[in-house]
Design a protein around this nucleic acid. Structure first.
Lengths: 369, 369
DNA sequence: ATATTCTACTTAATCGGTTTAGTAAATCAG
DNA sequence: CTGATTTACTAAACCGATTAAGTAGAATAT
């Protein structure tokens, strides 16, 4: 093994020798054990600095039988990473994990996570101390097995009805509601919906919000106005075309996310409906690209980056046993971002963040803790 | 620490007991040591299967002083992960690492990797056995320090002139060349170029290819026809606008990548140049989105997924000391994908892959090993 | 003055593997 | 038939940390 040269990294033993104390004392300093006098602590810290010492993770994890490594599960890498949603989510997870000086390892489920329960070995072998799952679906009901093992496990922006797994999610019902409400407020009565995949909480909840807004306005829900876009731009374009060919076509369409809304916009162009007044479009998520569509897309912001960071913090709490009772569920708020795809006037924006630019207008609540 | 319940994972000792042999024998079986008789090997393998045993990575890495973990460096997560280029690259790296039963840990450089040389500790502590760097720039010249340490390190689709670091790259010069040649073949004489960031090999080499094609056709290079787009869609739109406002405007533009080509298309739309004959556009990379632009983008395919996989295999070779002499450089081939953004007739496609659809036409070589 | 408790450490066992050195039995050479 | 080599294993040291148990010496209680 050509493992290279360079001086060997310092070990705890070398630090101990340098500081004139035992290994144990160094370990105590490292782990903030309070029984060490401040004079000794200072001497040890100086030795650590002098030698540029960093504890060996493998040794640490092996002997302590706990791991400072967190595993992040995603359905797929490559294709799915291109999705700005996953990209931002993983970015948030990374930042929070890095700040805590933990390590992140990445695993993909290839849509059949845990079928063999092999994943439990990662915990049993103390390879990892906790696990996050981004992009779980309603099909993942075998996750209920996790509940009984009590291994630290958190769902990012998803949950399983009736199964108490800790999670951090956006208020997806509200997202569908505020998008649809916006269209209703603009005078639309016949509003189509291009839905996401029916095996995701996100799609079902947003659709629920869509229905809720209709009901509240006294508009009768018409199932023929809902078409499935399966989170695909292409399929959403087809779905939109189907809606536009109805005897009485919708004057507005709410798409389950921004990528799908872009598909709807594609369909409008090929249908010759080029004016905004021909058909209004609202998306969801507020991905960066949504500012660049023609016309710029009105959408509902989802704080996926913040959701992911919160999910990691929740995971850490679980790992440290800080959370007494079984399941914890945190809900993050969302807000409407008004651009041009519905023909609404721009309204003054209420908050600034990475996505919202001066040309955007946002309406709605703040993130609640 | 609420580390959960469930039976403890099997250890090597339990396997040894089950098979009636020593720990050493089990270890030898695990590591394909040839001195074990096939009868004993079989017995051990059965015990392993029966107990569902998987070796503890921490113990393994600690005692062997080598690591089955590979670190993947990227400039940024979140924003940059949205880039289909990085997404595909990481996907390739993951697949190859997973197939070898290694682990992948992710680190971001935040554009200041190695400034403190802290990264070397990852090797010294045997936390990782190798490192890949996706998205390095020409500014990363401190990487030359790596050469002397002989730590297994591979650049993915980048290299540093004059500094012998192992790498796997696309033939970027050829990419720029074939894109520009295509435009020349279609009769264009005044061809603009929206260049990527000048601190990347990719941008400089593609620009080199652009110049080469011009020279070969006897067209004098005109520096005023080159504008920088910095890998940003927005900035590329501005750059294109600048080119279109020239006294004698270009009739075609080659953009350094597809995202930038989309920026050029944005600019064309706002300039009222809506017909393809007004200004042809060629991109590079062949990201999935390039099929969906209006009009669909002619581009040059870059096999970034294959490049990443090859980079991991190269890294493994380095880790196993299979590569005798210093630096290895592998070049992967590219090919033109003709769509509609230049008004060229579709040509029969020559190969099929994940990106190329029946509506695409591709021209050019195959990937060479 | 003596017993007891604290404080600030250290010794030694341990985690689960790998690896060096060693050994008994089987095979081979002469 | 005897000594040398080969084959197929094992014992024990080791990797670099954590941690339970132990121990001087100082402080406090009686």
């Amino acid at each position: 093994m050509a493992n290279g040269n360079g001086p060997k990294a310092a070990t705890i033993e070398m630090v101990a020798a340098e500081a004139g104390v035992s290994k144990t004392t160094v370990s105590f300093v490292l782990n903030n054990n309070p029984t060490i006098s401040s004079a000794t602590r200072e001497r040890v810290l100086q030795a650590i600095a002098k030698l540029g010492y960093h504890p060996n993770v493998h040794a640490r994890n092996l002997s302590s039988q706990k791991s400072r490594t967190v595993c992040v599960l995603v359905p797929e890498i490559g294709r799915i990473f291109e999705d700005p949603y996953f990209a931002r989510a993983i970015g948030g997870v990374y930042d929070e994990i890095e700040a805590a000086e933990y390590n992140l390892i990445l695993k993909k489920t290839s849509f059949q996570f845990a079928r063999e329960k092999e994943y439990l070995n990662l915990f049993r072998r103390a390879e990892i101390g906790g696990m996050l799952y981004i992009g779980s679906t309603l099909d993942d009901d075998y996750l209920k097995d996790f509940v009984s093992t009590h291994h630290p496990f958190v769902l990012v922006n998803s949950y399983l009805p009736e199964i108490p797994i800790p999670c951090v999610i956006a208020d997806n019902v509200k997202m569908g509601y505020s998008a649809t409400k916006h269209l209703i407020d603009l005078g639309h009565q016949r509003i189509g919906h291009v839905r996401g995949s029916t095996n995701t909480v996100t799609a079902m909840d947003r659709c629920e919000g869509y229905k809720k807004a209709l009901a509240e306005a006294g508009i009768v829900f018409d199932a023929s106005l809902v078409a499935d876009g399966h989170y695909s731009r292409n399929e959403s374009a087809s779905a939109a075309r189907k809606l536009l060919e109805l005897p009485v076509r919708p004057t507005a369409i709410y798409a389950c996310n921004d990528i799908m809304a872009m598909g709807v916009q594609d369909a409008l162009k090929t249908s010759g409906l080029r004016r905004i007044s021909d058909c209004a479009v609202v998306g969801s998520d507020n991905i960066e690209m949504s500012r660049f569509t023609h016309p710029p897309l009105t959408t509902v912001n989802m704080p996926i980056y913040e959701i992911s960071r919160a999910a990691v913090r929740l995971l850490f709490d679980l790992m440290e046993g800080k959370l007494p009772n079984g399941s914890a569920k945190q809900v993050m708020d969302t807000y409407l971002v008004v651009r041009e795809s519905c023909g609404a006037k721009h309204q003054p924006r209420r908050r600034a963040d990475g996505w919202t630019r001066s040309s955007d207008a946002s309406v709605g609540g703040r993130t609640k803790k």
